[in-house]
């Protein structure tokens, strides 16, 4: 019996033995539930009808992934979908217009699609940005929209910079960021909020790495989306169904 098949992600993380491809398990979801933080009252999150429509299209085809083995892994469809949902909520919260909201949701949905593995895959953001720019027509059509150059550049910039901490920005990064700062900030926040899926408390969402005043208010919802969708997936739902169920359970659609 192999180690990777029998040990939970939590146990493997504690031993610093997480494999390249990481799939959640019952023990890890139970561990996440047992470590529910003492949250303040949850922020009620109504989604606008146009934003709901974006969320309903946010499941991307597995063939868009650089590594199809990651479809159901901790950086796979469930993470991409939850990040898109959180981006949608944030955009609505900020009162963004439909195009700007779509730019953020699309960037969030594809931000990890060119990962090769679940560990520290340096450069996956840059690869996904190039991929998104090359496939803009395909991706925007998937969301029922047409790509406009400015929006594609903003989304691709957010995708490229999502893996670069603010304090590690190069001069080039700073220039790019200045052209798309709002979308970049939002995708970073949405991505960070979904860190409740990770099997170590020190990796969970931390407001010091993002620029979002409402970060603390969003944590309970982000946590519940992780717990409900991960449990649903382990019960047998597909990744897309699992997140759709979690979104319904939270009354977002």
């Amino acid at each position: 019996m192999s180690t990777t098949r029998t040990d939970s992600l939590v146990e493997l993380a504690a031993r610093k033995q997480l494999p390249y491809h990481q799939f959640t398990d019952v023990a890890t979801v139970e561990w996440i539930k047992a470590n529910r933080p003492d949250f303040p009252p949850a922020w009620p999150p109504p989604l606008r009808p146009t934003t709901k429509a974006l969320v309903e299209r946010a499941a991307i085809p597995t063939r868009w992934l650089a590594e199809p083995k990651l479809a159901d892994s901790i950086h796979g469809h469930r993470h991409g979908l939850r990040t898109a949902v959180l981006a949608a909520l944030l955009a609505d919260w900020r009162g963004w217009d439909e195009r700007m909201t779509a730019t953020a949701v699309i960037a969030a949905a594809v931000h990890d699609c060119q990962r090769h593995h679940d560990r520290d895959d340096q450069g996956h953001g840059a690869r996904a940005a190039v991929w998104l720019a090359a496939n803009a027509e395909l991706v925007w059509s998937h969301f029922g929209l047409s790509p406009h150059t400015r929006r594609v550049v903003q989304a691709a910039t957010a995708v490229r910079l999502h893996e670069v901490p603010y304090d590690a920005f190069s001069a080039v990064d700073q220039v790019d960021y200045a052209r798309a700062s709002r979308v970049c900030d939002l995708v970073k926040v949405a991505d960070a909020l979904d860190r409740y899926r990770l099997p170590k408390l020190s990796w969970w969402p931390d407001g010091q790495f993002v620029r979002e005043p409402a970060f603390e208010q969003l944590k309970p919802l982000a946590y519940d989306l992780v717990v409900t969708s991960e449990a649903a997936f382990l019960a047998g739902a597909s990744s897309a169904e699992a997140v759709a169920f979690a979104v319904a359970e939270k009354g977002l659609v």
Binding site: A134, N135, L138, H142
Partner: peptide, 10 residues
């Protein structure tokens, strides 16, 4: 039918 759309560029 949408699933039959052209493959993406790598």
């Amino acid at each position: 039918e949408a699933d039959q759309s052209p493959a993406e560029i790598h």
